[in-house]
Design a protein around this nucleic acid. Structure first.
Lengths: 203, 203, 203, 203
DNA sequence: TATGAATGAGTCTTCATTCAT
DNA sequence: CATGAATGAAGACTCATTCAT
């Protein structure tokens, strides 16, 4: 009775989040959310338009951060790029991802594995596509600056590299890696990746 | 009208496959299958225990092949391994996968993206784990034979590489790649991968 | 922002009218009205007792006019009636209706086709009944004045003639007749009707 | 348990009919039907696709008869028509309607006043249109045979006459007219109508 | 006057599965 | 082997209205 508006709303979101994590978007039950939030089922619809909106709202912090990440990269990197900095490029990208993982572990599980049926079901694919576009642009600029390198890399390969990252994120959030393990992995990944990229670009 | 026993069963499987591909495991409707197979709904239960069994049966050719693939590798490779053959190792592995893709494109979509809710939902994870185990064993043997190489690679990194392959398969079946495109990609992937592996193993 | 009292009320009525026309009484949503009127849903209940009252209020101009029409006729016609003026009688009646149609086309649609569930659902029937009573009285007076005519016309027939007019109104508002078309129709109707009436009254 | 298929089906239809008559299509409750038919709610959906299908099935005898009526007329009348038989024409038409009314009184109420929301909501309008088309054709043929008559009657007037009949049917089923009253009315109607038609056609 | 919160019964429809015949 | 009937819980969502503030 004496709740303030925000309290109830965020209360719903909290229990919704748990329900979504437990069952996935499709199988999550509005009834259950209502019960756990101590709210009348119909009352939920005074706060949210529908199930999908609740889901999006739960995911908003993550999706916003991810969008922001992509845009930031856009701004930051294409100013001064250097072939020898590709390690830096990788490191930054991955650091950003690691930060994301630490903040939004559960939400990432939701996004990657449990969003089927929601309007965010395609978010990852679209994100990968945008990331791929960015990668292509990066390579184009490198080629401009260092004409000798091989810029002739198939779009699909770049795409694959983008979705690899997503896969890695999925693996990390799934396996509850410790910070130390993450660090180790990142080191290996960078070693592996820079060697691979250098070879493929004949740099 | 005069179906033989096998006819009906395989008829059910055929329409079930289409229904599963169309809607995914969870959303696929037994009623629809029955209707399209010209079979009484309850009669389906004379041929299969439940929905899940139908799904598994539809997927059996794929899952068997995948299991077989893993076992074959086990047998074949650990006899004569050579660090210089890692390219061969990759090539073989990937050829096997490419064969799989060409034969079971639709089933792979089912397995990777539409199996949620079924008992095969975890198949990919388990497969990745088994594949990871294999990879670890491979490295251990390499290290035994060539003591100078770095065998100290984190389990998680290997795991990541395994699931990358799955991701790639997913990308290929999703994007309807042409054979030529697949070939191009494989070449790039191998170049990238062997360079990466060599570096990380200090080989 | 600074609405005056009347503004809000009439604002609600305006949006309610649109909503009613769009969905009919039953399917019209209070929520939608509130939203479109930029008014809190519960606040509507400070201006109107309930949905039905809103509907009646929206329809008031029409229902008042119709009531007035009936009363006017009552006053006007029963003073000097003449069997040869029956054409005039028809003409006046129909002119009144045509005026009504031009002024309240949309409201008439509401009243005739979309009032189910509201307290006006029976308005048309009651109106027809009252109109019938009037017709009966008219005939009675005619018979008094011209004893030779046949005054023995069944109540139901008169009733039918009354509801015919309502039907015609419904047809006109439904088919968006042009003025010219209405005129043509009225001429035909009067020709048809006077011939019919004369015959049936043996006049 | 020992019901035969048809029993249950027709049982559902019977209770559905009552529920529809009681509340109209939209407000009729599937729950109530199920309860009154002693059938599990979900079981109803083994017999009918949805609420609308039940409604159509309940109405089928009526709608079929009406369709048949229209077609029959088509066949019968346009062979030998005679201007002096217009009374016969009217009489036959109306007899057909009266027969309909006696057989399907309740269904007619449903169709005319309670079908809103169902797929039969427009049946009456469409029927009127078809009937109008028929009327136009009739007049055209008359004009051919008796070139002197006035065939120049507006479509809308004919349309109005068609929908008048529907109105009359509605009035009869609403007011529970006795057979004797119907007969009286029909006689008056025919007298009125033939006079009207003759005048308007200058015949 | 105005608002946000709450209500609780209600909507139609779908589901996989079981069972007696 | 096949069928038709049945089940009962569950699905998301809407409704007009009330009430305390």
């Amino acid at each position: 009775m004496q709740y303030q508006k925000g309290d109830i709303r965020s209360n719903i979101l909290k229990t919704a989040r748990i329900e979504f994590l437990d069952k996935g978007y499709k199988d999550a039950s509005m009834r259950t959310m209502a019960k756990n939030a101590n709210v009348g089922l119909s009352n939920i619809y005074n706060y949210f338009k529908n199930k999908d909106e609740i889901f999006c709202e739960v995911m908003r912090p993550l999706t916003s951060s991810m969008d922001k990440m992509l845009n930031d990269h856009n701004d930051k990197h294409f100013i001064s790029l250097d072939v020898f900095t590709s390690e830096v490029y990788l490191r930054e990208m991955i650091d950003a991802f690691v930060g994301l993982i630490k903040t939004f572990k559960e939400e990432l599980k939701l996004l990657l594995f449990l969003s089927h049926g929601s309007s965010l079901a395609n978010f990852v694919n679209e994100y990968t596509d945008r990331h791929t576009t960015l990668g292509l642009e990066y390579i184009r600029l490198m080629k401009e600056k260092y004409p000798k390198i091989n810029g002739n890399i198939s779009v699909f390969f770049i795409h694959t590299m983008s979705s690899w990252w997503i896969t890695i994120i999925g693996e990390i959030v799934t396996h509850d890696l410790l910070d130390q393990e993450i660090e180790t992995f990142v080191a290996e990944y960078i070693e592996f990746g820079t060697a691979g990229w250098k070879r493929i670009m004949k740099a």
